[in-house]
């Protein structure tokens, strides 16, 4: 391993570095405000009880071009429930969790917030609310410098997504700007729970091996045995979104109580954490299960 240094900012957030420090990180995602503010608070807290090491909180945007139907549904429910950027920050402040929180949203919301132009006011407010970083799926490295600078100013991390098609110069450009962790997109397409783990994941992890930054794999992970295989294959963390959002959606459709949905979110989290730990043991004993 050549351990290429990514940049001296690779760990703006101590808490994010910590999330990857002992064993594979379980990183769940939920859209904030889905289906309403109060339930959403309980759901996020259930994720922490289920073993989350870091939580990605989706701030819903009206045009989620990187999302499949599951998360699109969550975004519609959350927007209909009245979620706005200001409510989102209040939500972060109201949450009773200890793990680091990363905001996942689209660039227009970051760009428009606040009195002055550009991403700085949003980042300042995010830091004040206690967020530790951002994932912005429609912001490629080429357009990211203003946000990168604001993150550095306020001590937040900026996570980039690496796709199965990202290689060569593009990969270098991204790895020059990333901090916290890199989001390895497990396969092409949009978000959505899948039944199997793609070979594209292994190839991506291979290309990233020489970079010294935690690699979290997401897009399509829905069960403990996916988590196991992905971690055994070299991932430092697993990101799970649609499989959790499916549980929230099912709760809405079947009129389940908030507590019942929260219990299910906690249970699936435990299953995913257990899978990731099996993968980690397999990796250390050199047994690729």
């Amino acid at each position: 391993m050549s351990n290429r240094a990514v940049s001296d900012r690779s760990g703006n957030s101590e808490a994010i570095a910590q999330a990857f420090a002992d064993g594979p990180a379980y990183i769940p995602y939920l859209a904030v405000g889905d289906p309403d503010y109060e339930s959403s608070l309980e759901y996020v807290e259930a994720l922490e009880r289920g073993g989350a090491d870091l939580i990605e909180l989706g701030l819903p945007f009206s045009e989620p071009i990187a999302e499949g139907p599951t998360i699109q549904g969550a975004v519609v429910r959350a927007l209909e429930g009245g979620m706005t950027p200001d409510r989102f920050f209040e939500f972060v402040e109201d949450l009773d969790v200890d793990v680091p929180l990363v905001c996942m949203t689209y660039y227009n919301l970051i760009y428009q917030w606040g009195e002055t132009e550009g991403p700085r006011p949003f980042v300042e407010r995010a830091a004040e609310a206690g967020l530790e970083g951002f994932v912005v799926p429609d912001l490629p490295a080429e357009e990211a410098d203003p946000l990168r600078e604001a993150c550095d100013e306020f001590g937040l991390d900026l996570v980039f997504i690496v796709a199965p098609t990202t290689e060569g110069d593009r990969l270098d450009r991204i790895m020059d700007r990333v901090s916290g962790y890199v989001y390895v997109q497990a396969r092409l397409g949009t978000t959505g729970a899948q039944d199997d783990v793609s070979d594209q994941t292994a190839a991506s992890l291979d290309r990233l091996r020489e970079y010294d930054v935690p690699k979290a794999v997401g897009f399509g992970i829905s069960a403990g045995d996916h988590a196991e295989r992905i971690v055994a294959g070299g991932a430092d963390g697993i990101i799970v979104g649609s499989a959790l959002v499916d549980i929230v959606a099912e709760g809405v459709e079947s009129n389940r109580s908030t507590a019942a949905v929260a219990d299910r979110l906690e249970a699936i989290s435990r299953e995913l954490v257990a899978g990731a730990e099996r993968g980690s043991r397999a990796r250390s004993t050199g047994d690729p299960s």
């Binding site: 990187a66 550009g118 429609d138 080429e142 357009e143 690496v162 796709a163 098609t165 593009r170 997109q185």
Partner: peptide, 27 residues
Amino acid sequence: PVPGETGGKFGRYGGQYVPEALMPAIE
């Protein structure tokens, strides 16, 4: 001009704000 950005700009407008998976196709 918006600082720090490149590629396909008309004054302050334009650019390439797309998911990473599309960037190679756009290149």
